[in-house]
Design a protein around this nucleic acid. Sequence first.
DNA 1: GTCTATACACCGATAGAC
DNA 2: GTCTATCGGTGTATAGAC
Lengths: 187, 187
Amino acid sequence: MGPEGSDNWHAMLDGAAAILREEGHAALTSRRVAERIGVKQRLVYYYFRTMDELVVSLFRRMAERELARLAEAAESARPLRAIWDISLHSTDSRLIAEFMALANRIDGLQREVIRFIEQARTLEVAVLDRALARKPQAGRLGAAGLAVTITSLALLLSRENQLGVDAGHAEVLGALAAFFDEIEPVA
Amino acid sequence: MGPEGSDNWHAMLDGAAAILREEGHAALTSRRVAERIGVKQRLVYYYFRTMDELVVSLFRRMAERELARLAEAAESARPLRAIWDISLHSTDSRLIAEFMALANRIDGLQREVIRFIEQARTLEVAVLDRALARKPQAGRLGAAGLAVTITSLALLLSRENQLGVDAGHAEVLGALAAFFDEIEPVA
DNA sequence: GTCTATACACCGATAGAC
DNA sequence: GTCTATCGGTGTATAGAC
């Protein structure tokens, strides 16, 4: 329908993201999106066939941006630290929670989520492989296992951090800093 | 209002849990809950003041059951493995996703979630402390950090497993098995 | 405790004018 | 491309009878 990538298209996704973050997806309606960006409700259906489609488009746009950020981080001087920082800080964990819940019932979204996880994982494994080749570790985990572990820690730490829980966090952050110092020396 | 713990009260929470699991919280309405257990909509508001309150009650009941299971596991012959099994299998990750999203906008639920995380964490740290006292580890992490890491892995593995993603999972499971063998020998 | 009936608001989606 | 207007449906929550 409406031109993907146009100003209104982006504005609608921006509005939708803000609503999702601030009020949750029960409030993500065509009327609210329209009101938020100053157009009439009908126009939302000119740019998106259904509200589900809008949600999928929003996730896809976010995923593309996140993957671009990760790819850039992978080329930086200290890729592991850069990827860790992105994983820990870039995406609001409120939004992640909303998308995970929505993925349970929107098929197209579930496919996009799977795609994103796999692409991010592949990228992280590649970075870890290169790092391990330079500085072999005595640990039990290889690149794939480390990628899973680091991702899972980033998700849990940011979610709990937002909730106000921090038991054990300092210890984990300390261990990760030590690990990064070993495998990716600053000097 | 209605008697907490009565048959209808439990039946309503059972129905709500099933709806949440199968269709997501957009479908969690008083009408559907009533229909599912064969009563009229009005009755739901006899047992719960609002739908938000029903959701909070549902989470609290689940959390209490889960904590009881964890406490029992902590007293078993191999508490670490028992807790790991529970963390990985007991709660449907669809439900977790729904509750996390709902916690973003229901204050009472957010408080219950925080309470649950802290209690579970405390219990796990106690178990890990005892295990580490018997079999000190050379690793970087103490009991608190290990509890965070193990919890985060259980959450991510079960969620991705449900999505159909398994990159790196086998490696993590292998490393955990080795860790359990060391710190909590079978023989 | 359980019901019928209902007030009132909001939703997704579409018809069709300009 | 953007609008007015509207249909049909569903939601929360309450009034009040039995």
